[in-house]
Amino acid sequence: MLTRPAQLQAKALLDQRLPDAAGADISWTEDAHGNLYGWIMLDNAPRLAELAPAMARCRLRLCTMTAYDPERDPANPQRAIAYHFDLDGLTLTVTAPLSMPEVDEDGNAEGKPEVPSITPWFRNADWNEREFMEMYDIAVTGHPNPRRLFLDERLDAGIMGQMIPLSTMMNGASTQDLWERIMSAKLPEGTTAVTASTVTAVTDEETQA
């Protein structure tokens, strides 16, 4: 299917204006309907501060941002952020890899991965940056409103990588160990709390008898 003229004009503009600021060429793909998708891979995150004003001058509209771990290896966490823009129907994705902080001998990171805020040029970056700050524990320098967006302050940042059972989050269920400790605290001294394992042991004794 033929690409819309507006997208072709947008492509020509971006090819002319962005590669110098990005320090990288734009690679292009197309879907079955002829819609154009541009992809820029930056060398580093601070480059965004040079590229963002050039993109704003091109009248690009910020659609959203995606923070992610490219490798999803818990032993070696990485961070990258993909910024998705629109210009007259063309979609441009700019990916910035983040430098990870050094890790001390106890395995604790000394600081957080950092990225400059693009809110000076794209006002609607505000919520997007707040979201990945809390989900992926990324520091955004120069953000005008660095408050939590969806998660309560008492929750750890970077929680996107953890899986917490709903019952635990709702404080409604307990582990076997917790159940036994609670019941033991309530029962008179010397009494054993009835648990599944206790029932099983009694049943086995009855069976053997």
């Binding site: 299917m1 819309r4 507006a6 879907d31 309907h33 002829g34 819609n35 629109d86 007259d88 129907g89 979609t91």
Partner: peptide, 12 residues
Amino acid sequence: DIRKDVPHAAYP
């Protein structure tokens, strides 16, 4: 309007 700006499905 994405139906016009980014043609997809039967919209074209």
